[in-house]
Design a binder for these strands. Structure first.
Length: 581
DNA sequence: GCCGTTTTCGGCCCGACTGTTTTCAGTCG
């Protein structure tokens, strides 16, 4: 996969052009970086399949960049990048990560003091050499030192599921202030992106100063980066940066629209406004100096001739085009996204019978409290019994007795007898016979070992599992763990075609580290007409909340209610699973 | 450097905050 290398090279080219005030090129390279960051396919594969043409078909990639990608594939380098790097050979990746340090300052530091790395930078500041440079006063030095510390603290993006509890706590606390009329968390949290880089909080208040004072004094705040009347920025102890913006009622909708993003969606909407001789900014939609919209997002979108977009799909991944098609009465418009409350049950969780922390009864009671109508207990089944305390046929028979008992004693929730069975390297269920599997209400198949097989064999392995009529769902189909384990090598086109043909269901595993399928693969499944299920993979009652994360990814993947099987009622689902075989 | 149902040339989203610049550059989102 060469994408990360191209991303690094293009980012650096962008910074170098910015150092020299080259107009427009930096933004062009930045845009291309965002596009490449959000794609899954390997640029090299795309190039090998379709040459430069296939590359320039991507948004933001034109001839110049396609040539550079080609050059990198052929020679392993990009001459223009090397030329620029030679002029200013510095560790851009880490220097630019320092808050408040941009290309101009990095250039000055290199030219005047030969600063190349974070260590160099720390050294010259501590040696008192930096104060002689223009625009490097004591405050700047202090901020840079703090920024270096922050970068070294391993600052990265945080998993959505890990950030949400704190975010909601802060949101609630601000909302309860008497000085605030409304508080909403915007940004990637509102879009429910799988990882988030910072918090963007928006508030309506007629006393912004007091709200800002309160915000900056919260116990989670480690350092105040900026504090103004309309915007404040802080670093939190957990490594997240948080921004609070206070806006007026009249501008709340446009501010929410703007700070929800993403950036490319916003650029598109602003251009569309421009095309109608309007201006869209965070204060409203303007015709000349007259504000014509801004109180609500619906109003803002309407004013520029667009429908409302659910936050989860605001990624400039075709939603604007779909809306425009819809406006012209053409097919393939915006989807009617599955709703959070459409989910009736949870189709993967574990109990004390295998590696869960709570009994079947405790899980069922907790799920009922969350409004689930049914759950599937899917304890591990495998010949490799030592793994995750997996069950054999004998123990399953005992476990079923317990499920029957709990089903009798609990009203208002149904428990399905399920299993998450390992599949071997040929896609065969490991340790449980077909004659036994058929007795379960629902069977999940998953890969837990030999995850590094070559692409063709791994794809074959999964498709073989799909062909087995006793296996209903492929659990966490790609095996990835966000920020820690790569996806297994799979030909997703073939996987989708295989699922469509066999009627196999692909799981959207809602566990924060997994979110697997991810949003883009969900989109492919939707397009292929493949059904999906959402399961929390809960190992404790606290994890049952994760269902929301899975639905969020389904929404980000443009899934509708019909695409997700656990939007069905219990009787519908049982009938559906029986027909599946 | 990219892009195009008003364009293959002439545009390119827009504003807040900081610091030390006495009028604005740099950075960020």
């Amino acid at each position: 996969m060469i994408n990360s290398k191209i991303i690094k090279i293009f980012s650096e080219i962008s910074e170098y052009y910015a150092m020299d005030d080259v107009p427009f090129k930096p933004q062009a390279y930045e845009k291309a970086v965002r596009v490449i960051e959000s794609m899954e396919e390997d640029l090299e594969v795309i190039y090998k399949a379709g040459g430069q043409k296939a590359l320039t078909d991507m948004p933001g990639i034109g001839r110049g960049m396609a040539e550079k990608i080609e050059e990198f594939i052929k020679t392993g380098r990009v001459k223009e990048h090397e030329r620029l790097k030679k002029k200013c050979p510095v560790d851009l990746e880490h220097l630019t990560a320092v808050e408040g340090l941009g290309p101009k300052m990095i250039k000055t530091l290199y030219q005047r003091l030969h600063v190349k790395t974070l260590a160099d930078l720390e050294k010259v500041i501590k040696a008192g050499k930096i104060g002689k440079l223009p625009r490097f006063g004591s405050k700047v030095q202090e901020n840079i030192l703090r920024g270096i510390k922050f970068v070294k603290g391993g600052q990265g993006r945080i998993l959505l599921g890990h950030a949400l509890p704190l975010v909601r706590k802060i949101e609630k606390r601000l909302a309860e202030l008497k000085e605030t009329e409304k508080v909403v968390v915007a940004g990637s949290i509102r879009r429910m992106k799988e990882t988030i880089g910072d918090l963007d909080i928006l508030a309506i208040s007629s006393e912004p100063k007091r709200v800002m004072d309160f915000f900056c004094a919260m116990p989670e705040v480690e350092k105040i980066l900026a504090q103004g009347e309309t915007r404040s920025s802080v670093h939190l102890h957990n490594g997240l940066a948080a921004d609070l913006r206070v806006v007026s009622q009249e501008s709340f909708g446009s501010a929410l629209q703007y700070f929800t993003g993403n950036k490319d969606h916003n650029i598109r909407t602003r251009k569309i406004a421009q095309g109608k001789n309007l201006k869209l900014n965070e204060y409203g939609v303007w015709r000349g100096k007259k504000q014509i919209a801004g109180r609500t997002e619906e109003e803002v979108y309407q004013a520029i001739g667009l429908p409302y977009f659910e936050p989860e799909i605001r990624e400039d991944r075709g939603e604007i085009e779909a809306a425009l098609r819809q406006a012209q009465g053409k097919p393939s418009g915006l989807p009617k996204l599955v709703k959070y409350e459409d989910l009736k049950g949870d189709l993967q969780m574990h109990s004390t019978w295998s590696d869960g922390a709570y009994t079947i009864k405790e899980m069922a009671e907790a799920a009922k409290k969350l409004g689930r109508q049914y759950i599937a207990i899917t304890d591990h089944g495998s010949a490799k019994l030592r793994i995750a305390n997996a069950l054999d046929e004998k123990r399953f028979l005992k476990q079923w007795q317990e499920i029957d008992k709990v089903n009798k004693s609990l009203s208002g929730i149904k428990i399905l007898k399920g299993v998450e069975v390992d599949i071997d390297d040929k896609g065969r269920p490991d340790g449980l016979s077909d004659a036994f599997l058929v007795k379960f209400d629902i069977v999940l198949a998953s890969v837990h070992f030999k995850m590094r097989m070559p692409k063709a064999e791994m794809t074959e392995r999964i498709i073989n599992a799909m062909k087995n009529p006793h296996l209903d769902i492929i659990a966490h189909p790609t095996g990835r763990k966000i920020q820690s384990r790569e996806e297994m090598a799979l030909d997703m086109e073939k996987i989708m075609a295989g699922a469509k043909e066999t009627g196999a269901i692909l799981e959207i595993n809602a566990y924060p580290e997994r979110l697997d399928l991810n949003d883009e693969n969900i989109r492919k499944a939707v397009a292929a007409g493949v059904k999906m299920s959402v399961g929390t993979d809960a190992h404790s009652i606290e994890h049952l909340h994760y269902l929301e994360l899975g639905v969020a990814q389904a929404r980000r993947g443009w899934a509708e209610r019909k695409d997700i099987i656990n939007t069905m009622s219990y009787p519908e689902l049982i009938k559906f699973l029986k027909n599946q075989g």
